[in-house]
Design a protein around this nucleic acid. Structure first.
Lengths: 148, 148
DNA sequence: TTGCGTGCAAAGGTTTTGCATGGCA
DNA sequence: TGCCATGCAAAACCTTTGCACGCAA
């Protein structure tokens, strides 16, 4: 699109954030998770900075962003082209405890093929979320861990 | 599936809300849109009520719910073709033209089985929406009608 | 009469923004 | 030295929840 995008400095915070994300490729974390991670390490990074950098990385295409709902926090994940050529991963969200489950499943990947071939619909796994009840909540009757 | 769901009274607010939604089938509106619509008509309906009724209608399969982003408000739309409570039905939403596609497909129904057996996740088809690009928009390369 | 539905206000949680300061180039 | 990035706090938003009252069955 644009030719220069932005100036974009290379700050310490950005470096550390990116370094961390690279250690957990494909894993989705929320902005709050990131803040907490650094906080525990004694390295405090402002929430605004995390949001701003994450958003920028999304623009740059090195990080994926998943919206799991309305008031729910967005998830981000470092996109490691190496381990996931297609970036095929699906998400299941428990309607009871709110937990987001990350799935790498070949069988589910066929859904995309089926939708394309039979229904001429190009699936966007990035945005698609399966809603339902997770194992813990179903088994434990009321809830499993109820983290959100 | 369930035997009684809930008592579910037939209140004035519910009637009016449903009546309004039926006049704009397939069109997606936010809770705020609904509140504003009635407010302009001089008929005030509480925001909580709108959220609660809308959510209930989603459970009943007569309204679809879509996530439009992270901090963005959820969208709802009256399903012209009500979902068969017993049968399986899925929805695909085009990210380009916003169109909602109704699918009755046995093969897709297997997703539920797969998720249950392999991932111990009980799928809720009523709340699950596949996001992607529809045939018309894909064919036209750039866009079809592009309403969002 | 029973109990669900409604509506207001307040709470809860996520993300954005204003502004002064600090650091990269 | 410029200018962007950072951080803190506050604001903006969307959605949920508590509670008393009203209405449907």
């Amino acid at each position: 699109m644009s030719m220069m995008e932005k100036a974009s400095y290379k700050t310490k915070q950005r470096e550390e954030l990116l370094e961390y994300l690279k250690t957990v490729p494909g894993v989705h974390v929320t902005a709050a998770d990131v803040v907490e991670y650094f906080h525990k390490k004694g390295r405090v990074i402002g929430t605004s900075t995390v949001y701003r950098q994450l958003e920028r990385m999304v623009d740059e295409g090195i990080v994926g962003k998943y919206s799991t709902g309305a008031g729910a926090p967005a998830c981000f994940a470092y996109l490691a082209q190496a381990c996931d050529p297609e970036g095929v991963c699906f998400h299941c969200k428990c309607e009871k405890c709110g937990r987001l489950i990350h799935l790498h499943c070949e069988e589910l990947a066929q859904i995309g093929d089926h939708l394309l071939k039979e229904h001429a619909f190009v699936l966007d796994p990035m945005r698609t979320v399966f809603y339902g009840i997770c194992e813990a909540c179903r088994g434990g009757k009321e809830n499993g861990s109820d983290q959100m």
